[in-house]
Computed example of a mutant assay.
Amino acid sequence: MELTTIWFSLIAILWIGYFTLEGFDFGVGMLLPILGRNEKDRRVMINTIGPVWDGNEVWVLVAGGATFAAFPEWYATLFSGFYLPLLLILVALIVRGLAFEYRGKRDDDAWRARWDLAIIVGSYVPALLWGVAFANILRGVPIDADMEYVGGFFNLLNPYALLGGLTTLMLFITHGAVFISLKTDGPIRAEARALAMRLGLGAAVVTVAFLVWTQLDTGSAGSAVAFVLAALALVGGLVAIRAGREGWAFLGTFVAIALGVAGLFLALFPDVMPTSLSDGVSLTTTNASATDYTLKIMTVVALIFTPIVLGYQAWTYWVFRKRISTHHIPDPVPEPAAVAVGDSGGGTTQD
């Protein structure tokens, strides 16, 4: 197997890891105003992803870095052509990360409400725009003979791409609901399980529509198999959540997203960014790749460090594997009252 094919496959694996792991992070954030009826419920929801959300984001950083090093032409065309949506995603991820860190810095309802809004918006925006971006890559965008993107922002807002965005959004919010039911106990667990069933039905309809459209438009035999298995895994996850088997349900949504993303890359190969212009040039694993020497060095580095990263992340999930509920959340500590300074006959007060 050629190194270009190996690195295309590795980049696909990185995106699978990102969507399956960060997907439930986005889902938890999107569900914050629905399941988080009070501060303790919201604390429980945020704490389910608190130890892992930043580690899950590493996958997209590595995917971007690997694309830059292994396929520089793909990286350059993608980030120049999709500049605005990718910038919106980046800003949303930054604001969302700040919200996780700062919402608990002050015991003030208005303060927390503003950061909660940042978490919600910072979860919805990437969940939608990642699907829009990947759908456009599959559909093809205007790339000229110089391998440069010559379209505009509104070229990306076509019906197929918007359906792709709705698909990732629905899958992620379902994945998040299943994760909350898996990681919590008490009333929020039951509510999340019931909500996951309702959301999952909508996600199944949208996902099947998008995958069928993709298969008819650009699919291959390999993508067809992956898409069918993804649909079956999603159905299996819904059956499991209905039976109260949250672990199996989470596995079902996890596998459905993984196989769906794998199918998209199988449908794309050997292109990495096809052109929609008759006189344009599609970017492929061959004409967009780095030199063989670069790919060889990257392969050695990946073989050394990938097992370390996977082991560390697996250990993190194992350590924080137990369920949490509202009785684990302490009551807020009141701010200290003013303390008198001076003698008994009079004086001033200070905070």
Rank of each mutant, 00 (worst) to 15 (best):
G219Q: 08
K296W: 08
P187F: 06
D351C: 07
V95D: 00
V121T: 13
T299M: 13
I13H: 02
I49C: 02
T218E: 13
G36M: 02
A204R: 11
T218W: 12
L129S: 03
L211H: 14
P334T: 05
I241V: 15
L238M: 07
V141S: 10
G165N: 05
V62P: 02
E246G: 11
T207A: 14
V208G: 13
I119D: 00
V333I: 15
V301W: 05
L211C: 06
D108V: 02
Y83G: 01
V341L: 14
G81P: 08
S325H: 09
G260F: 02
H328D: 15
V339E: 14
I6S: 07
K296D: 11
L31Y: 03
A203I: 08
I137C: 00
Y18R: 05
R43F: 06
Q215F: 09
V178P: 01
L216K: 11
W7F: 08
L90P: 00
R245A: 07
G165D: 02
T168P: 06
T184D: 13
S278A: 14
V300C: 03
V95Y: 04
T20M: 10
A161S: 13
F305Q: 03
A63M: 04
L166V: 14
L21H: 04
F153S: 00
L3V: 03
D116Y: 12
D343V: 15
D25M: 01
L199V: 12
V60W: 10
A258I: 04
P85W: 10
A231C: 08
T168G: 01
G55V: 05
G81C: 09
V125A: 03
E101K: 09
G131A: 03
T306R: 04
R43W: 05
A204G: 05
A133E: 03
N136I: 06
G200C: 13
L251D: 01
A340S: 07
A190F: 13
M30C: 14
V52P: 08
Y317N: 10
A63G: 12
L232I: 14
V150N: 03
V309D: 00
V272F: 01
Y160V: 00
F250T: 12
V235F: 12
R193E: 12
F269A: 13
P336H: 13
G244M: 07
F26N: 11
G64M: 10
Y160E: 13
A288C: 04
I16L: 14
A288K: 06
A340R: 13
H327D: 14
A338L: 15
R114H: 07
Y75R: 11
G237E: 07
P72Q: 05
G219N: 11
L98C: 06
S123M: 03
S344C: 02
N56R: 08
F19I: 10
L129N: 00
L87H: 07
R198N: 12
T48W: 15
L31G: 11
T348H: 14
V341Q: 15
T275A: 05
E335P: 01
V178E: 13
F134G: 02
A76W: 00
A290L: 00
F265N: 05
W248L: 14
A230S: 15
R114Q: 10
V28D: 11
R139S: 13
S289A: 15
A177Q: 00
I94W: 01
A233I: 05
T20W: 01
